[in-house]
């Protein structure tokens, strides 16, 4: 699956007579035939969330097109799940009930529920209702519910912002396992290089000057621990390369 974003523009009305341009004539190619996990790194205020919401079909662009495999979006890409920054598992439901929320009797399968629960690392917690501040736990649940729909693409809108470094590493390893076992495709937006470098097959960088695409970076080395990656020559090379182009946080 190749998603081509052509001349995409979007602005919002801030107050009467004043429009804020989010991005203008954005061009981008997301090749999911060669990559399962692509990250978009851009500084805050670039419009990363807006871009994902346009891809998910929630917001209409002012102009431009999104073409999937040579067809307009929504004709071929029916099943895109958007996971926002905020944790969105239903706080009064248990893990199992969250994973099965909104599914009809025909869609429900005990074995699939159990498989997904084990995939997201919550085996033994089926009846557990997580605390609202358990961000890592609740991200796993949201991901589990997303996987139940067998999506063609999962959009991750900076979902790791509230995670501490220990939980982050656990979640990253779980995500890698999900990609391997479920063959799912992910598009992550982030302003943190660490998330992108650890998880992605390809990183797309946007420079400080909005809309200017800096570079497509292929990530060829794989790491099992964040610390190993941080000390690697590969990571420092990328960091040096992009530090001058965009303002990044680790």
């Amino acid at each position: 699956m190749i998603i081509n974003i052509k001349n995409l523009s979007k602005s919002f009305i801030i107050k009467a007579g004043y429009n804020k341009e989010i991005f203008h004539d954005l061009n981008l190619s997301l090749n999911f035939d060669e990559n399962n996990f692509i990250s978009l790194i851009a500084p805050s205020g670039f419009g990363k969330s807006t871009l994902l919401k346009i891809i998910a079909g929630f917001i209409k662009p002012d102009s431009g097109k999104i073409i999937v495999n040579e067809n307009n979006l929504n004709k071929t890409l029916n099943n895109v799940v958007y996971i926002p920054t905020e944790t969105v598992s239903i706080p009064w439901l248990s893990v199992k009930k969250n994973i099965e929320f909104g599914l009809s009797e025909n869609e429900l399968s005990e074995s699939k529920t159990n498989f997904i629960i084990s995939l997201i690392g919550l085996e033994g917690y089926e009846d557990h209702i997580p605390d609202k501040n358990s961000f890592g736990f609740r991200f796993r649940i949201a991901l589990g519910r997303a996987l139940y729909s067998d999506p063609e693409l999962i959009l991750l809108d900076e979902p790791f912002n509230k995670l501490d470094s220990f939980t982050k590493e656990e979640i990253f390893l779980m995500l890698k396992n999900v990609i391997k076992q479920y063959n799912s495709r992910f598009l992550l937006t982030t302003s943190g290089l660490l998330d992108a470098a650890f998880l992605s097959d390809e990183i797309i960088l946007f420079s400080k000057d909005e809309n200017i695409l800096s570079e497509y970076l292929k990530v060829e080395q794989r790491y099992t621990h964040i610390n190993d990656m941080l000390q690697s020559e590969f990571f420092n090379r990328i960091l040096n390369k992009i530090q001058t182009k965009i303002s990044l946080k680790l």
């Binding site: 099943n79 799940v81 958007y82 926002p84 905020e86 969105v88 909104g102 997303a146």
Partner: peptide, 26 residues
């Protein structure tokens, strides 16, 4: 976070009315 909940459950293919009444109102 209500809007974020709405986007997430809507993207899962759940009907708007169901998301609004079973999630957003709660």
């Amino acid at each position: 976070d209500k809007k974020e909940y709405y986007y997430f459950y809507k993207s899962l293919g759940i009907k708007s009315n169901q998301v609004m009444n079973k999630v957003i109102f709660r």
